[in-house]
Design a protein around this nucleic acid. Structure first.
Lengths: 357, 357
DNA sequence: TCGCAAAATCGAATCGATTCAACTCAAGGG
DNA sequence: CCCTTGAGTTGAATCGATTCGATTTTGCGA
């Protein structure tokens, strides 16, 4: 019960001294996992209050080899999709007392590697990663032993845990929607084809054409890079084509914004002269109602369940973290979520004069 | 030079053993702050490579009492503004090797307190906070000794470091823009008036009217809560008013979306029948071009420099962190940034028939 | 009142990197 | 040839909480 020394922040030692017990007992009180007599508990709690003691999580982490922290690496959090994902992650993590270390890779391979190194060095309990560099993960993962859950993007044949959207199906349905409306010349603006999301969407588009016995016009398949400018450029080029397509599928949210700009600039009426369908809402999905309904025209989109992707990724990761043994091989670590087709006003039947094909 | 024991992750001890030196020397090599003979450096580095050694940042943090991590508490990262801020923070932090612990308070006072406690417990080097509860900060701050920089929202008379936008001026200019166009009956949809941002914007509105010798019609001053639904409801009520205003200033981004919906639903033409000006872009500012230009109508807004707010907040905080002594009192710790008026198509001169005032 | 099992508390080692006083050793001066 | 000097290296203490085997207390029956 000696007077506490003057410090900025007190330790269990100080609390113990003030309460007249040992640090082990203070620890027992703090963690509540061992039995301590009520009278002692009270004494310790008083001491803690008196000193405004807060246990040092860093020291604890060192000792128990667990940081109660997960790292998240996203390629870009300007995109509405990743913001939704992030919200899902944060909510799931917070619910179980985990903190989130946020890293932005800017879609840059080196940044991503640096971030992963930093996260491992900081001994996060697990990592959520939307990787820019699909082929270098195995490496990082194998070396570290830290659980990793990939989301959104997954290397072909990846055997680890991952949460993705069924992009083939999403794209198929988007394309199919246009075909069902009567479109025969449908164009596609693809994303970075080295990413699974982009190639899957391209594949869905291809299959939908195939199933409808429509030819795949090479000029209608454009390579974008998931950035708005490429939506704009490819949009312009498509609109200027002699045989202009009657409909365009645009394979992500921000490229769709670029495409819209091109359409406005060229004074092409949508959906009268051209139908367009986008991927993702162009802004976070969380306002209670969606921004797309305010766009000119109201956008038909295939919306990915971003929040759900985040939530399930985090939950999967936290499950892996809490299992010390390797998860049984028979349970599939790949979770696939379905996107939702939201038909609004940017898609309609093509005008009667069918363009030459 | 004994063979390394099998472990998941190796320590300096292992590296030292393998390299035939002491841990102190390994530490010296890792940190490069003391002179070590090149031949020894090489031996140590080889050993590190061989074991795939990565220093344990947790242990380091404990010893040096520094985590190279800052905590960020935002009320909501669905809003485009905070996403921009976050990007600014992340960029600034990453540039100097800091990590970011992200917390979402959901504009809930208890969440915020919990997050702050957690961050202090985790011994972050500093905290960036957009506080929901302006009057309980002093407490947390004084007790902890951890540097805190407030951003976006600041309690009146706050004496600590903060980075804010000049909301009075921003709102003044928005209102002034409408008055200059000839509007005489201008309405205002306010946010949560307990927040400095909201009350400052209300004040700017008030002053602009006053300077123009226009009366402040009570029915034209609406209290919202910064959420889209309140923009919608207040919008509806304003539009249904007998003396409908000819222009509306809406004091944040998502409420403006709600207001837009109300306008569409009521089939009120904008800007012909009503001019509106919003605060913030309704989505992140980072696409290279802005979403507002695609809205129907293209929105005139007062855009806050979100990225800059984030960047300067982080830089200010990191400066505080690196100074061990208290900063001199004579330098003003309050940074005020100016918003930018972006005139687009949702504002125009009122129609000739002046409504009864 | 005593003895003893059970319950409560304690002491000391530990996690992994940093730090600093102490020590080694080679070079150069006297 | 010895001593000083200083560059390079090392051992051991330290950061603060946890943990576990050891020790003390408590409560209860005899």
């Amino acid at each position: 019960m000696s007077p506490p020394p003057k410090k900025r922040s007190y330790t269990m030692r100080d609390v113990a001294r003030l309460a007249g017990v040992s640090v082990a007992t203070v620890s027992a009180v703090v963690n509540g996992k061992q039995v301590v007599r009520p009278v002692v508990v009270a004494r310790v709690q008083d001491a803690m209050k008196a000193l405004n003691f807060h246990p040092d999580h860093v020291a604890r982490s060192l000792r128990v080899k667990k940081t109660t922290t997960i790292g998240v690496v996203v390629p870009d959090f300007s995109s509405g999709f990743f913001v939704d994902v992030l919200r899902g992650i944060e909510d799931a993590a917070r619910n179980v007392g985990y903190s989130v270390l946020l890293c932005n890779s800017d879609d840059d391979v080196e940044q991503e590697q640096r971030h992963l190194k930093a996260l491992l060095s900081r001994r996060v309990d697990g990592i959520l990663l939307a990787s820019t560099d699909l082929y270098s993960i195995a490496d990082t993962q194998l070396r570290s032993g830290t659980p990793i859950v990939l989301f959104d993007r997954v290397p072909p044949g990846y055997r680890g845990a991952a949460v993705v959207v069924d992009n083939v199906d999403a794209s198929y349905r988007a394309t199919r929607h246009l075909i069902d409306l009567g479109h025969r010349s449908v164009a596609f603006i693809a994303g970075r084809l080295d990413l699974s999301t982009a190639s899957d969407r391209a594949e869905g588009f291809r299959r939908a054409l195939e199933d409808a016995h429509l030819p795949l016009n090479g000029a209608y398949f454009r390579r974008g890079d998931f950035h708005p400018e490429s939506g704009y450029q490819n949009g312009l080029e498509l609109l200027r084509l002699q045989n202009r397509p009657t409909a365009i599928v645009c394979s992500n949210g921000v490229m769709t914004l670029g495409l819209l700009r091109a359409i406005h600039e060229q004074h092409v009426r949508c959906p009268e002269e051209i139908s367009i369908i986008g991927f993702d809402e162009p802004a976070p999905d969380s306002y209670g109602f969606n921004l797309s309904t305010l766009l000119r025209p109201e956008l038909t989109v295939v919306a990915q369940p971003g929040y759900e992707v985040g939530k399930q990724s985090a939950q999967t990761l936290l499950r892996l973290v809490s299992e010390d043994h390797e998860p049984p091989a028979d349970q599939n670590p790949l979770i696939t979520l379905q996107a939702e087709l939201r038909v609004r006003k940017s898609t309609a039947a093509p005008s009667s004069q069918t363009p030459t094909q």
